[in-house]
Design a protein around this nucleic acid. Structure first.
Lengths: 205, 205
DNA sequence: CGTGCCTTTGACCAGTTGGTCAAATATCGC
DNA sequence: GCGATATTTGACCAACTGGTCAAAGGCACG
């Protein structure tokens, strides 16, 4: 077990996690093998296990790292900003994550579909609390007449659903759109949808 | 290899497919084992392979059956109906499928996330064509001023995304909502979203 | 250039995997 | 109740799985 992080350790750990992301995001935890990960990382299987104690450890390291990036942007929604623009910025950020880090999204999707055996606690704990606070903010906006009244939870669900769809169902989206870039149209559509839903009646820019 | 379908054959094949749906929808093809399926079905592993030639065959049978139910409701959208109501009915139907057949949704999601190795052809063929026709209908509605102008493809994507989210991410949704039934709020929210997006300016019911 | 530590690997292991097969057992038409 | 046929299963197999380990190969530093 390495204590300090030498150059070579950093390099190999990064290579392993990167390879593991590729493999786990496609096949899920149980469907992936250490040989696949080792192959993808260009290392031997025993060498993987020199840097990580087990397959499980690689996977959970990946998940933990992901959860940080997952929860953080939620906290950036400012109660004193313009409501529609705040929510739009969040949705745009999530869509860009789908565009640039689709594997992370698929890894997460795999874990949730599997029943979230390793992150259920986080979902029922930190995430739930975070969303509770956000719901209060959104409800405040609605009561102040700054947005139309909406269910804050289902609003967030729909933002998650639509943005992650472009990463998780990438193959399907591209099968239908052909050569066109999905993300341009996606952004415009999501913006239109959120503005239509949220902009209070009587607002004419 | 059974030729005719006796009572016992129908029963066992149904039991196998039902068990396979439970297992495959949770762990994906590679993450599932025949022993799991056999256990769930209450049969021995060699007995499974008496009714189906391989693990692969069970899985593809499940997928083929699923695709039928998946594509059919798309065809029920009538060009001469009321646009908003037609699309709303479709979304409602999809949401009800998420509610009552979440495993089917997760099986499909697993297959797509995996890269759709077994149904890529259908996506690029039948599904794409079907959506092409639907896009023409929706564009027609927009040109006739019956709905606001929208990208028909991304509109459908967002309906798929939001409705399937409640099946595929069921665990996450319930972790956040607690005891509340997700589907009541979901239906109301989706209806509100679609009406806001689609109802042309100046329509006041 | 040698010594101590970090890194890498080939050989190996026990358990699991999808799948086979011959023999046993149940079912059905007569 | 009998023979033919359909169904079920225990024993088995080769390939693969996650993981171990001792030995070998590099590397840095005196």
């Amino acid at each position: 077990m390495p204590k300090a992080d030498t150059r070579i350790q950093k390099k190999n750990q990064a290579a392993i996690l990167s390879a593991a992301l590729v493999v786990f995001s496609q096949f899920g935890f149980r469907g992936s093998t250490l040989d696949q990960v080792a192959d993808e990382a260009g290392l031997s299987k025993p060498n993987l296990l020199y840097y990580f104690p087990s397959k499980e450890a690689i996977y959970t390291t990946l998940l933990a790292r992901l959860l940080e990036n997952w929860l953080e942007p939620l906290k950036n929604i400012k109660a004193d900003g313009d409501p529609v623009e705040e929510l739009l910025a969040y949705a745009t950020h999530k869509l860009e994550m789908s565009q640039h880090f689709p594997r992370e999204s698929r890894l997460f999707a795999n874990e949730i579909i599997q029943g979230a055996p390793r992150i259920g606690e986080v979902l029922r704990g930190e995430l739930r609390e975070l969303l509770g606070e956000l719901a209060i903010v959104i409800n405040g906006w609605a009561e102040a007449g700054k947005i139309r009244p909406v269910d804050p939870y289902h609003l967030i669900f729909s933002i998650w659903a639509v943005t992650q769809h472009y990463a998780d169902f990438d193959v399907q989206v591209r099968a239908i759109l052909g050569d066109a870039d999905p993300f341009e149209g996606a952004h415009a559509h999501i913006e239109a949808m959120l503005r239509a839903l949220l902009t209070p009646a009587g607002s004419n820019p």
